[in-house]
Computed example of a mutant assay.
Amino acid sequence: MKKQIAILGSTGSIGTQALQVIEEHPDLYEAYVLTANNKVDLLIEQARKFRPEAVVIANEDKYLQLKEALSDLPIKVYAGADAICQVVESQPIDIVLTAMIGYAGLRPTMSAIRAGKIIALANKETMVVAGELINTLANEYHTPILPVDSEHSAIFQCLEMNNPLEKIILTASGGPFRTFTMEQLQTVTKEQALKHPNWSMGAKITIDSASMMNKGFEVIEAKWLFGVRPEQIEVVVHPQSVIHSMVEFEDGAVKAQLGVPDMRLPIQYAFSYPQRIRSSFDRLDFMKCNSLTFEAPDTKRFRNLALAYEALHQGGNMPCIVNAANEVVVASFLKDQISFLGMSDVIEKTMQRVPFIAAPTYEDYVSTDAETRRIAAEMVINGMK
């Protein structure tokens, strides 16, 4: 029987690659639900090709366009954030791939967990914002959470034998500005930041990679996914992106997962787990891997990584504050409203101004997110005043 997949964020980088995996294995997987935020034209194209049971557009202003374009097909059409939360509870769905961008992925992930769906987690912000809450829900509803991020998928694969670990080693490419000086970083542009040396990703995550906030979020996510202490999570810059992450066990042995930089590999593994299935994706050619290098991250030039570690150590709603502030400054940077280094300044100041809550509830996360966005946006507009 085919596994029925709900793809939240089907028009993004992860979502489109997930559909490629489904297309490669039509005997194993079927797209049951597709959702998008704004890209209605691409969602229409995907719906006509994959014929899901239902589609949802988060932007309700696009509903009529979507409804009319699919009126000749027996596809249910919905709109709005509430509809996304409701549709993931559909009985036939086996796996929910959470590939939405940012804080918006939290509510539908919680709904899917409560409905007992397997979670293929590509929305790292869910664990960054509310990792403890998500783990509590997953344990309560006995819901598996399978990581899709290449780094966390690598760790997940390395830990399958359940040997006692000493630390997790997350690899980072270093992004496009790895060798830039502080002086050079002061004047970098969004066009430069969007040119990642190894990966093809959406704009938001590409900027996060350039600032190393993406790696900071992965550190926080790793704590909740694998139940380790912050001091057991190490970041190593590995520019070639061949080793996706490593685990060091308590006897000193290190196990690494290697592969080409292709997100379809961890997506497929999350879909097929615990089995592995054949794919036509590119293979790693060791004859061309003649240099694998490693270096320590520079948290003075890339302060976001240090800020993420600080948030992780503080706990409570602090990671939620960092995530919301980061979403604001990245959007501002993409609109040329703030400098590359200025993003870290606003995030740090916001961490100091938003009230800290040691043991937040879901309602606290919602209010923290809203308050943080207001304060961060004001700082961007007023120039940090």
Rank of each mutant, 00 (worst) to 15 (best):
P108L: 04
L97Q: 09
R107K: 12
A79K: 08
R48V: 04
K76F: 02
Q240F: 12
V188R: 11
T136A: 09
M343Y: 03
A270S: 05
T293V: 03
S344Q: 04
Q268K: 14
V366A: 03
V129H: 12
I207F: 03
D27K: 14
A47C: 07
E248S: 05
V260L: 05
A359G: 00
S367C: 00
I44C: 02
A154F: 00
V330D: 01
A370E: 15
A79S: 13
T136N: 14
A81L: 09
K67N: 14
N304I: 01
D336I: 05
N198S: 04
F226P: 04
D369E: 15
L170H: 06
K335T: 01
L165I: 11
S367F: 08
E191Q: 13
G316A: 13
M201H: 09
Q192E: 06
V242T: 12
V242M: 12
T293N: 04
E30G: 10
S344T: 00
L34R: 05
P239T: 01
P355H: 12
V228W: 12
V237L: 10
E183L: 04
F271W: 10
I101H: 10
L307S: 07
T206D: 01
D285A: 09
H313N: 09
F281E: 01
L133K: 10
G131S: 08
G383N: 13
V235T: 05
A79I: 11
F294W: 14
A296P: 02
L334Y: 15
L159G: 04
N326T: 07
A31S: 03
S280V: 04
T189F: 14
D364Y: 15
V242I: 15
K223I: 06
K124Q: 09
N38M: 02
I233H: 07
A54Y: 10
Q240E: 15
A112C: 03
L165G: 00
R303C: 01
P74L: 08
P197T: 04
Q352G: 07
F281C: 00
G105F: 05
G383Y: 10
S153I: 04
K76D: 08
D298F: 05
E89L: 08
V237P: 06
T171W: 08
N162L: 03
D251W: 05
K300M: 00
T11G: 05
L258M: 14
T368D: 08
A253G: 01
K190H: 07
D298C: 04
N135A: 13
E45G: 00
K215E: 05
A79R: 13
Y103L: 13
A36Q: 02
T98P: 01
E310C: 06
